[in-house]
Design a protein around this nucleic acid. Structure first.
Lengths: 115, 115
DNA sequence: GCAATATTTAACGCCGTCGTTAACCATTCG
DNA sequence: CGAATGGTTAACGACGGCGTTAAATATTGC
């Protein structure tokens, strides 16, 4: 049930196009906070909060690499995405049965316009 | 880009625990609107709007079966879930490369506390 | 026709989100 | 030290989501 609460935040985080855009950029390589703000033509504070949201949900992590301690690098983290996939798998497990019945039905009624 | 817009709504729809709960119930079998409202101890109007959201995103469909034309049956629809899976696949495709590089890096620096 | 049933729409209030600008650390470097 | 740079936090306004109750719309059945 802890996981369910976390899914709330995960989905909410992904509902924002800017945040999905960030994820898209981070797929290629880690990026600096300011770099991301610029990429979306958005004020640094605005991006900072988007990053905070992504951080809190665990979709992204921040580490202070580089020789300059002011800059923060953001990168993707796989765990939450796996969790998301797990949820999706669970929901879609249903199609298996559903489509199975459908297939069987189609099989039985093949070629007939109306059974 | 139409698909991206749709993802906004899909994720937003799934961010609500009630709506995910509805999806969970619909996995087992189609349900009536009022039945769903009762299941979540919620007023019919509130559930009605949740269902409207789910309908608009295409996660759910409504058809008026049964001999009583007043009742509406809701059931899941696979298309949007597939779309979601596609997005997730795309994002996760990155782990392959990432983990690959990480593995190589770990390989090179194995046993050293600090490179 | 009229009361009861199933669901949706309308109108209202509350609270959280998203963006902006201004102020606030921390760090670099001249 | 002191200005400049990178980033986050604070305060504010606009907008939208979610729940409630009241009213509207079908449809059923006596």
């Amino acid at each position: 049930m802890g996981a369910a609460r976390r899914l709330d935040d995960t989905f909410a985080a992904l509902a924002d196009p800017t945040r999905r855009g960030v994820i898209d950029l981070l797929r290629e390589q880690p990026r600096r906070a300011g770099e991301l703000a610029a990429a979306f033509d958005m004020s640094p504070p605005a991006m900072s909060r988007h990053l905070r949201v992504l951080r809190k949900t665990g979709l992204v992590e921040e580490d202070a690499v580089e020789d300059d301690a002011r800059v923060k690098l953001y990168r993707l983290r796989p765990e939450r995405f796996s969790e998301l996939r797990a949820w999706l798998d669970e929901v879609e497990a249903f199609w298996g049965d559903q489509l199975q019945s459908f297939k069987e039905h189609a099989e039985r009624t093949r070629g007939k316009k109306r059974p």
